[in-house]
């Protein structure tokens, strides 16, 4: 148990530290790299909590796709970070004050709130002897089939939307028309001419 606890504090500590680095690093590329570190450590926390599926999804989706996308954006857009940070110190006191008030309020709420109000309906616990992935797989295509399919349609709409907003007709472009090429035959491409000797065409 103590080992698990030590690992938890290690992972949690690194997560928080890299979170701080994400917003304080001067170079945006470093920020993204620290964010990846934060994702990996959060994934470790999920494994500790027994949610191995979430851990894997976090790495595949967030590190594999989202962070790489961020890297692309950061590298392709020429963002003047120094200029963006101009107002940072000016707004810091107000921001800190708002944060402090929020923190105090949170403590007040959690101090007085009885979280232990048992849920009224019985939530479904993770079934015994089944891995996360199996348990999710069992309900994803049965109980939540409806939402799953709709999510697929939402993704399709996202593709249609992205193409609608960005695809442009760039004027006359010569495209390869395979069917035209295949159906090309002798009559279309070869012409027989009788050339008079000594006169040319």
């Amino acid at each position: 148990m103590t080992v698990a606890l030590a690992v938890f504090y290690l992972l949690a500590g690194i997560t928080i530290a890299s979170g701080v680095m994400v917003i304080s690093a001067r170079n945006p590329v470093h920020s993204v790299l620290f964010m990846i570190l934060a994702f990996f450590n959060s994934a470790g926390l999920f494994v500790l909590a027994g949610a191995e599926f979430l851990a894997m999804v976090l790495i595949v989706v967030y590190v594999g796709a989202v962070a790489v996308l961020f890297l692309f954006v950061v590298m392709m857009l020429d963002i003047d970070v120094v200029a963006m940070r101009q107002g940072f110190m000016k707004y810091l006191p107000v921001g800190a004050l708002v944060g402090l008030v929020l923190l105090i309020e949170l403590f007040l709420v959690f101090g007085t709130l009885r979280i232990a109000d048992a849920p009224i309906a019985a939530s479904v616990p993770t079934p015994e002897g089944v891995t996360n992935t199996e348990a999710l797989g069992a309900v994803l295509y049965t109980e939540y089939f409806f939402a799953f399919q709709l999510a697929g349609i939402i993704l399709l709409v996202a593709i249609i939307g992205a193409i609608t907003l960005t695809l442009r007709d760039r004027g006359p472009i010569k495209r390869q028309n395979i069917s035209e090429q295949v159906h090309r035959d002798r009559t279309k491409s070869v012409r027989m001419r009788r050339v008079e000797p000594g006169r040319g065409l």
């Binding site: 939402a147 709709l150 999510a151 349609i153 939402i154 709409v157 939307g161």
Partner: peptide, 14 residues
Amino acid sequence: FLALYVALELMTLP
């Protein structure tokens, strides 16, 4: 609430 959320997104994304 799950159906509500996905349907709402399907409505608003377009």
